[in-house]
Design a protein around this nucleic acid. Structure first.
Lengths: 248, 248
DNA sequence: GTTCTTTGTGTCAATATTACACTTTCAAAT
DNA sequence: ATTTGAAAGTGTAATATTGACACAAAGAAC
C-alpha cells in the first residue's frame, strides 16, 4: 500500500483524513504541523491528506494516507464527503505552503474527506519513527486549521455523532479491554453532552454486546473497575434481528 | 445559473444527481435515457450529471445540473458522497457513449453524488420542453444503470432513509397540500416497510408540525381526506428545543 | 485506620410503543 | 333513492423504555 509503481498523481482530487483518537478522557484528532513560519499556530496545522493516484480508488487512497502517517493497517474508515469550494486552497499561507510541496500549486483540488477511528494506544507519535511533526490534539482545543480543514473536522464530528447512534463503532477507539466508565466517557465526548451514569450502563448492558472479562483493573487508587471486551459475534446477531438505533 | 462565461470544465470531477420524486404511491427517480443502440435497456439509463466548472463549487454544480434538466430552482439537495473507482467509467457501452460526448473520454473522473427531492407535480417531463429523454421511474423497478449509477442510487436511498429519521424532509416530495395517507405512503416508500396507520398518525400529529387546513379533498369516490400543510415555523421551534429523532 | 476517589447498583413515575377493528363519508352504479 | 365499494378516521390496553435520583463498597495512599 505504499506509492505504486508507474502510478501518477491526479492533480485535481485529494483525500484528507480526520483521524480520531481517545485518550480515555477526551476525543482527539491527529494533526500535522506544517511548521511554516508565516502562518499562525492554528492555521499551520492540517489534516493529513494527499492527491490520489490514478490507479487507486478513494478508500484505498485514504487508507494509504493513514498508513503512510501511522504505519497502521485495517483501520475503521468512513467517508465524510466531498469538499470542493473553488477557493478552498487560496488562503495566502496555504498557497505559500503548497508552492513548496506541489508541482502544480495552483490547480483546483476537490478533496474527499474521511474519518477514521484509531485506538490511541496503537499510535503514539513520539515513540514512533514516522510522522515526527504529527500529534494528537483534543478536538475541543482546535479553533482553526489550514485550508478548509476546520470545516471538514466539524462535519466529520457530526457524521461520527450520527453514526454512533446507529452502530456501536466507538469500540474502535478503545483498547481491547476497557471499563464501562471509559466507554461512558467516550460516548459523552463524541455526543458532547453528559449522560446519566446509571442509565447509560443499563442501556449498554441491555444491548448484550459486551463480554465481562471477570478481570479487574490493577493498581488504581480506588475501587477497581471490571474490564469488558466488545463481542462482535453478539453484535452481528443483534444486527440481524433488525436493530437500528442505539439512541443515547 | 446557466453555463458561465469563460468557465472551463474540470476533466476529473463531476456531479451526479439522484432526483427523487413521489407519484403519491411510490418513490421515483428521474433518469435519462442515453438512447445508445449498443446498450441494454437498464444500462442505457443514467443519472443526470456533468463535469464541474472551474469556478463553481460542488453544490452549485449539482444545482446547475438539476436546473438544466428540469428548469427548477431552490430544490432540496443533499450530498451523498464521492465515488471514485478508477474503473467506474470503463464498461464498454459506457465508453462508447462517452466518446460521443466528451472531449477526453478516457480521463478518470471522480464524481460527487447528490440526491434531491422534487415534488413530482413540479416537473412533468412530457409536458416540459426540457429533457425529452428524461422520465420518472419507480425506484423498485430499477435493476441496473449506466456507470456506477446503480450503486450511487442505492447509497442515496440509504442516506435518505437515515435522514428522514432525523429531519422531516419528506415534505419536499409532496405538493403543498397533502393528506395524511399520502404522507403515510411516502414514509413507507422511503423506509421500504409497512407502518401501522394509527400509530403513524398519532406520532406525526404529536410532532405538531402540520397545519390542518380544514379543507377536504374534492371528487374522490370515498370519504374525502382532510388536507394538511407542513408548518415550517413550528418545525423550527421543535428543532430549537433540541429534537433529533423522528424514528418511525 | 482514616481519607480519598471512583465503581457499581435499584426504583418509581412518566412516557412511548405496539397491536389491533369498526364506523363514517363520499361517489358511482343500479 | 338505495346499495356498493373504497379509503378516512378514530381509542385502548398491555408492555417497554426513559429519566431522575443517592448511597454503599473497594482499593491505594497516607
Amino acid at each position: 500500500m505504499q506509492k505504486k509503481s508507474n502510478a501518477v498523481l491526479n492533480p485535481n482530487v485529494s483525500v484528507d483524513c480526520v483521524i480520531f483518537g481517545f485518550d480515555l478522557e477526551k476525543l482527539t484528532v491527529l494533526l500535522i504541523d506544517r511548521g511554516d513560519a508565516g502562518a499562525e499556530y492554528g492555521t499551520r496545522m492540517s489534516l493529513p491528506g494527499d492527491l490520489i493516484y490514478d490507479n487507486e480508488n478513494l478508500d484505498e487512497a485514504a487508507s494509504r494516507v493513514l498508513n503512510e502517517l501511522t504505519g497502521l493497517h485495517d483501520i475503521y474508515l468512513e467517508q465524510v464527503g466531498g469538499f470542493g469550494d473553488p477557493n478552498r486552497l487560496n488562503k495566502e499561507t496555504d498557497q505559500a505552503w503548497l508552492k513548496a510541496i506541489r508541482e502544480k500549486p495552483n490547480e483546483r483540488v476537490v478533496t474527499i474527506a474521511y474519518y477514521s477511528l484509531v485506538p490511541s494506544s496503537d499510535f503514539q507519535p513520539h515513540a514512533s519513527s514516522f510522522a515526527k511533526n504529527a500529534d494528537w490534539f483534543p478536538v475541543h482545543q482546535i479553533t482553526d486549521l489550514a485550508f478548509d480543514h476546520f470545516d471538514i473536522l466539524q462535519t466529520a464530528r457530526e457524521k461520527l455523532r450520527q453514526k454512533i447512534k446507529i452502530q456501536p463503532i466507538g469500540f474502535n477507539l478503545l483498547p481491547e479491554k476497557f471499563t464501562l466508565s471509559q466507554l461512558h466517557k467516550l460516548y459523552e465526548s463524541i455526543l458532547d453532552k453528559p449522560l446519566d451514569k446509571r442509565n447509560f450502563r443499563r442501556k449498554i448492558q441491555k444491548l448484550n454486546i459486551l463480554t465481562n472479562l471477570r478481570e479487574k483493573q490493577q493498581g488504581v487508587p480506588h475501587k477497581p473497575s471490571a474490564l469488558y471486551m466488545f463481542n462482535e459475534e453478539k453484535y452481528l446477531e443483534l444486527m440481524q434481528k433488525g436493530f437500528d438505533n442505539f439512541d443515547f
